[in-house]
Amino acid sequence: MVEPLLELRGLTKAFGALKVTQDVSLSVLPGEIHAVIGPNGAGKTTLVHQVSGTLAPDAGSIRFNGRDVTGLPLARRARLGLARSFQITAVLPGFSVLENAALAVQARSGSSFRFWRAAATEAALNEAALGALAQVGLQDRAETLAGDLSHGERRQLELAIALAMQPRLLLLDEPLAGAGPEETERLVGILAGLKARYGILLVEHDMAAVFALADRISVLVYGQVIATGTPGEIRTNRQVRDAYLGEDH
């Protein structure tokens, strides 16, 4: 039995009377893509916030890499190797593409309380950053301002930033949101290439992409996980078809 990289147990969060996530339990194994799907308002975003550390759960626990991180803030979890991407792209628009990635590398290599040497001339940072950009096919855009990128390219940069952190787990919050068909195809290709190297918790709307990529899928409806299983099992699960897939198909 492999020790899971990420394990959520009984995560519960309510806003007033509204229970946004209810007793959510799921795990991500090393090298596995575990996707979370669900209709709008199912509580996916709230779940991402709780896993990444921007929102504290009311009950339940989060174990990451053998350690209870439930009470740790975002930055601490990131330092432990939990990299998240943002649904609404949060690249630094005034930074070049390279500098966006280099900052992520900088977070993992040495102190940032260095005041004199120009960070842009640190070859070690730039090389690692370029490596991450190459993994998503953005190396040719390194000198462009991130604010000038197309929407799809920003999504790629989001991924590159997460990769540059050399994380153990990627928490991807709708990485395909707003991408056109061609961009989606490219991004799915990139994600497929990452599979097996990182544990990935993938929260995504795009069914085709999820069924193509995921090893396991959990279905979230009204804040509750109604089923977890392989894509094949989920596809044939009655409850899921009724509650969710039925609406689309």
């Binding site: 975002l74 990131a78 330092r79 943002f86 630094l92 930074f95 940032s112 952190m165």
Partner: peptide, 11 residues
């Protein structure tokens, strides 16, 4: 530019 992004990087 974006304090949340910075925290997500571990700073």
């Amino acid at each position: 530019e974006n304090p949340l992004r910075l925290q997500a990087l571990g700073f």
